[in-house]
């Protein structure tokens, strides 16, 4: 019962924050709403007994990605919000498209029958994930680390000032 109440509260909170991100006129407010929606999703991860993913969400998304986005907003402050409406002219078609996308996803989910009971999550889930990352999923893990390294070197190369 308490779980359902918490889910409802966090779902409404996350959706409100997501709506704020999409509709806010001030880009800095958008970024703060985005942090709120990340935090709401992190709480829902904890509700789903995925503690590892929840903590990773807080560290990576709120700690790193949101900070990086706010840095980018600060660095581009001179050119933001100088002219007119924050939306483009196709908003009606875009809203229709998003509504259709949601209707299709909802229809798809409503056709799946998961049965009555969920399988229990193993007690030592974090230990199993850790073991999985160095045994069964070692290749994706290593590829992800190389991808991150290459992406960071590339980001420095793209963003640096060129004096020529």
């Amino acid at each position: 019962m308490a779980q359902q109440a918490l889910f409802l509260i966090m779902a409404v909170f996350t959706l409100g924050m997501a709506l704020g991100t999409v509709t806010s006129r001030n880009i800095f407010h958008s970024a703060l709403f985005l942090v709120g929606s990340f935090a709401g999703v992190a709480v829902i991860y904890f509700l789903l007994e995925a503690e590892f993913v929840g903590v990773a969400q807080i560290i990576i998304y709120i700690g790193a990605i949101a900070t990086l986005i706010i840095f980018a907003i600060m660095l581009s402050r001179s050119v933001t919000g100088q002219n007119g409406s924050p939306m483009n002219r196709q908003w009606a078609f875009a809203a229709l498209g998003a509504a259709l996308l949601f209707a299709a996803l909802a229809w798809l989910f409503s056709r799946v029958d998961f049965g009555s009971t969920a399988q229990p999550v193993p007690e030592d889930a974090i230990a199993l994930i850790g073991a999985g990352l160095v045994t069964e999923y070692v290749i994706p893990f290593e590829v992800a680390s190389i991808l991150l390294l290459v992406a960071l070197v590339g980001a420095i190369l793209i963003a640096r000032e060129r004096h020529s």
């Binding site: 996350t14 997501a18 908003w91 809203a95 996803l105």
Partner: peptide
């Protein structure tokens, strides 16, 4: 819930003019 968040994100990508948003 995930489908609603995804649709909202898609809407934002389609309507906003600011690259950062």
């Amino acid at each position: 819930l995930a489908a609603i968040i995804f649709s909202m994100g898609a809407l934002g990508v389609l309507v906003r003019r600011n690259a950062l948003i």
